[in-house]
Design a protein around this nucleic acid. Structure first.
Lengths: 338, 338
DNA sequence: TCGTGTCTTGAGAGCGCTCTCAGGCCGATT
DNA sequence: AATCGGCCTGAGAGCGCTCTCAAGACACGA
């Protein structure tokens, strides 16, 4: 029972009170130039007096814009709904940027391709939003491409696994992983294992690729276990690795959460970090400073990624041409674990 | 740039193609009864053929509904943007429930009362949403009351600190805390400390109250340190407590994240858990199973809280009378830390 | 003095939809 | 046979806004 519904002042009321036409009132409200100052003031004080707020629906109807952007996230993604605060950090960045542009953020979760998938597609292609940000895609998700084809400005976080022209923002995962592994190698580690991320996500794939390439450069054998970015999977993967190769002296985990899990598994297996085994993570989450020992990790600017992806989609919605790929810098943060 | 904008089929097109009037097409689309079956089918196939999606703006304009609900979260809250996945779990619940009702979720972050505060207020009272969910409020935030007064259906997560009639959904924090402390007392602990949550949030306040009351019942002295729900603050608080009372043999932390921090601090101070010091947390986050040792904690159904709060606001928006207070059950999960 | 150009303002169409209202049809009742 | 009531359908108004277009006001140069 929104009582404000019926008796909310309209532009007409404002115009009347200010003694001008609706058109002029509209000009003032929308900050158009070419309105005489004294008229402008009259309108503004009428707006103030009545507490006028433009009706977005009416405005959208004529402008064909909605001033809102959809943020689509895969509900099944462990980075979204687990103990990995990745999601929150991205949202924050997106939110900051949209707020600055006075756009709304419409959050849509999608399950594994099913009804909710269609729902998102219908909603977005139905012109309910000016653009869409898609992140945490699994496998060859057709959604970005479909929306894009339908004319909806789309920007992704993370490279698409499909052949696709949809622009994205990310870090150079492969290179960052290579840097991490090189650090391990450079500090004298010999048997370097990795706990890879999910192999149906670009971040997981590319970081593993980076690891492999660094190992190859050093003519070393790869030792791989795969996790899903969660702590638990990290611990499990670490145990496996230890069983596979009890001699390993370093591990690169594709996320801090997995690294934390690995730390626990190492401890439980009586290994000292970094004395026996060095550990490097990925993300530089807040908790990475407080693990035991503090985690050496690859910092990626998560909130910045959110901001950037939002900025790109806004530009795209404004009709600008945007860079198809934007890679943000990473940095190896050396702490005590490696 | 949204090319779908201009050439999207309208209800008029559908009607034409089906050879009926716009009114009838509208009836079919909105699932109204009293349309002859064969006409219904004709309209539906026209909808299908054209890929018609109703224009939400036009619909809102006349119905005065927007089919979207705002989720307002305080950006400064550590539970929202830290290593505490509380936020994600709540969102998930809200999202699930709104999706089922085919409503959109508009996410709004607010900073400490400032421009963004006004923005949210303007937006919500401006009739852009059918209702608002507010959570993680700090101190005596006037927002819920203001929106409510303006006629916007509002439901909060957590008791309001102001005198206010705004309905809320929560767990019985005080009682849950009491149960946790009683468990410690019952298992023979004598000097039970607490790491309280922020004292400008009802969850923080009420859990501390529960602790105090349990201690009083047992004629024991309270030993209190205050954190902000984060791991780091938990570790810090634990160190303080240890300095204050080296003899303490148990601690109740108002969140799992703080409990985890406390675990670390205890380890670093050479205390064994649970042998020397027993630890109980609050939340039962996923990681609580994987701490060392696994954490005994008070489970609260976070996702359910999200669902419930969403359900309530939907009911309210539909004009129903709703319960002013809804408390969901908690459960003490006994693991190894206490 | 008049015409021309510039700037500000108002009139009005129309965005796509819902919903009221009245009209048409048909079977049932008197 | 005439009337009534119920059901389905279409016509059309209007939600609140933006934006085009033209008219009015004014200054300027010819």
């Amino acid at each position: 029972m929104v009582m404000s519904g019926r008796d909310r002042p309209t532009l007409e009321n404002v115009a009347q009170r200010a003694g001008v036409s609706r058109a002029t009132a509209s000009r003032v409200v929308n900050g158009s130039t070419s309105v005489a100052p004294h008229i402008r003031d009259k309108v503004l004080s009428a707006v103030d007096a009545l507490g006028y707020v433009p009706n977005q629906a009416a405005r959208s109807l004529v402008t064909q814009r909605t001033d809102s952007i959809a943020l689509v996230a895969s509900e099944t993604t462990s980075r979204v709904f687990s103990d990995d605060p990745f999601f929150a950090a991205v949202i924050r960045g997106v939110s900051l940027e949209l707020e600055a542009a006075d756009k709304q953020l419409v959050l849509m979760m999608v399950g594994p391709s099913g009804p909710s998938h269609d729902r998102v597609e219908r909603y977005a292609t139905g012109g309910h939003v000016d653009g869409a940000i898609i992140f945490s895609m699994h496998g060859a998700d057709p959604l970005p491409e479909r929306l894009s084809r339908a004319g909806v400005p789309v920007v992704c976080n993370g490279r698409l696994l499909t052949q696709s022209q949809v622009p994205y923002v990310d870090v150079d995962n492969e290179d960052a992983a290579r840097t991490a592994v090189h650090h391990l190698l450079d500090t004298g580690r010999r048997r370097v294992a990795t706990i890879a991320g999910p192999q149906d996500m670009s971040a997981g794939i590319d970081r593993l690729k980076g690891y492999r390439s660094a190992m190859q450069d050093a003519s070393r054998r790869s030792i791989v276990a795969v996790g899903d970015f969660t702590r638990q999977s990290g611990a499990l993967a670490m145990s496996q690795l230890l069983a596979d190769d009890p001699q390993l002296d370093a591990v690169f985990a594709a996320s801090d959460a997995m690294a934390d899990g690995a730390l626990r598994a190492l401890r439980q297996n009586g290994r000292r970090v970094p004395d026996d085994v060095a550990v490097v993570g990925f993300d530089d989450m807040e908790f990475a400073r407080d693990t035991e020992p503090p985690l050496t990790t690859v910092r990626q600017p998560i909130t910045d990624i959110g901001r950037t992806v939002a900025r790109q989609v806004l530009r795209m919605a404004a009709g600008e041409q945007i860079e198809p790929v934007l890679l943000l810098p990473t940095e190896l943060i050396k702490r005590e674990s490696a």
